[in-house]
Amino acid sequence: MVNSHGRFVWYELMATDVEAAKAFYADVVGWGAQDASMPGFAYSVFSIGDAPVAGLMNLPEDARRAGVTPHWMGYVGVDDVDAAVARIQRLGGAVYVPPTDVPNVSRFSVVADPQMATLALVKGLKPGLAQAAELNASGRVGWHELLAADWEKAFAFYGELFGWEKAEAHAGAMGAYQQFSAAGETIGGIFTKPPTLPLPFWLYYFNVGDIEAAAKRVEAGGGEIHYGPMVVPGGAWIVHCTDPQGAIFGLLDRRRRPIGYFIPRDPSDAPGR
């Protein structure tokens, strides 16, 4: 994992029905699934062709009893997991899973920032397993977005932790949207979440070639569309969704449309209605 410090290198879906999750994401995003289980631990890998994209596992029973629901989690590469965890604690964050070794795979920790958005840290992910740094590639994770309680405080935390730097910024209906870069590449954005959302969280966008068709597949598969399709600055189109088990994710279509292009969700949404 060359130059992986501060970059998202892996993603995992924790689900209550892994077979149903495989079928849903195969239809919506086009992922295949390969078994990667170890003794006593069932695990699958979503893939595009032979290229791994993300992991899939059962939501642990103790987590279910604690009220944790299916969710996506991103892993950020770090040079030293233990040092990064200590820094998180000094900066006011929390540690849910202390630094732990996965034999012959990695050392990782599950943490939360001071506003309680969860993510994982990892070092030593096996070559060939880490997410390639190809934000535009079909079926890959193309964008990382933090819906924070306070975007400025959140950015200060992640800048101190990972060395992220400010990139382009713009103002929209929901206030300031600050993009951030790692190792010189813009990989995501941070903004202050609407008050209707109870908790801060990280949202991961999967690249699709036709967002209208993908949104229809989400709904046909039992998922739900919460926002979009909607154009964002730069001309890309996005959708916010939940899968049938309640895990939140985004879809991203980077194709530019003609000026004035509009995607009606239903006839009453069309301009002039």
Rank of each mutant, 00 (worst) to 15 (best):
M1I: 06
N3F: 10
H5G: 00
G6E: 05
R7T: 12
F8R: 03
E12P: 07
L13Q: 01
M14C: 04
D17V: 13
E19N: 08
E19R: 06
A20I: 04
K22L: 00
V29M: 09
V29F: 15
G30P: 01
W31L: 00
W31C: 00
W31M: 00
G32K: 01
A33F: 09
V45P: 05
S47Q: 13
V53I: 14
L56H: 09
L56N: 13
L59R: 07
G67M: 13
V68W: 05
V68K: 07
T69I: 14
T69Q: 15
T69A: 15
T69M: 15
H71K: 02
H71V: 08
M73V: 14
V76M: 11
V78L: 13
D79V: 12
A84Q: 02
A86S: 15
I88V: 14
Q89I: 05
R90M: 05
R90H: 09
L91V: 02
A94S: 09
Y96R: 01
T100R: 01
D101A: 13
P103I: 00
R107D: 05
S109M: 03
S109C: 08
V110C: 07
A112F: 01
D113M: 04
D113E: 09
A117D: 13
L119I: 07
V122P: 12
G124C: 09
K126A: 13
K126T: 04
G128S: 12
A130K: 06
A130E: 13
A132W: 08
E134R: 07
L135W: 10
S138T: 10
G139E: 09
V141Q: 07
V141E: 04
G142V: 04
W143L: 03
W143S: 04
W143A: 04
L146D: 03
L147F: 05
L147M: 14
A148M: 03
W151F: 06
K153S: 09
A154W: 04
A154V: 03
F155Q: 02
A156I: 00
Y158R: 04
L161T: 11
G163C: 09
W164A: 06
E165P: 00
E168S: 15
A169E: 13
A169M: 10
H170S: 02
H170P: 00
A171F: 01
A171I: 06
A176Q: 02
A176I: 01
Q179N: 08
A182I: 06
A182T: 11
A183Y: 00
G184F: 14
T186M: 11
T186G: 05
T186V: 14
I187H: 00
G189M: 01
F191E: 01
K193A: 07
K193N: 08
P194D: 14
T196Q: 15
L199I: 14
P200V: 10
P200I: 14
L203A: 05
Y205N: 03
F206V: 10
N207P: 06
V208P: 06
I211G: 02
I211C: 04
I211M: 06
I211Y: 03
A220P: 15
G221C: 14
E224G: 06
H226C: 02
G228P: 07
G234C: 15
A236C: 13
A236R: 11
W237A: 08
I238V: 15
I238Q: 07
C241T: 12
I248Q: 06
G250H: 02
R254W: 10
P258E: 00
G260E: 02
Y261T: 12
R265M: 13
R265P: 03
D266T: 13
S268H: 05
D269T: 12
G272M: 08
G272R: 03
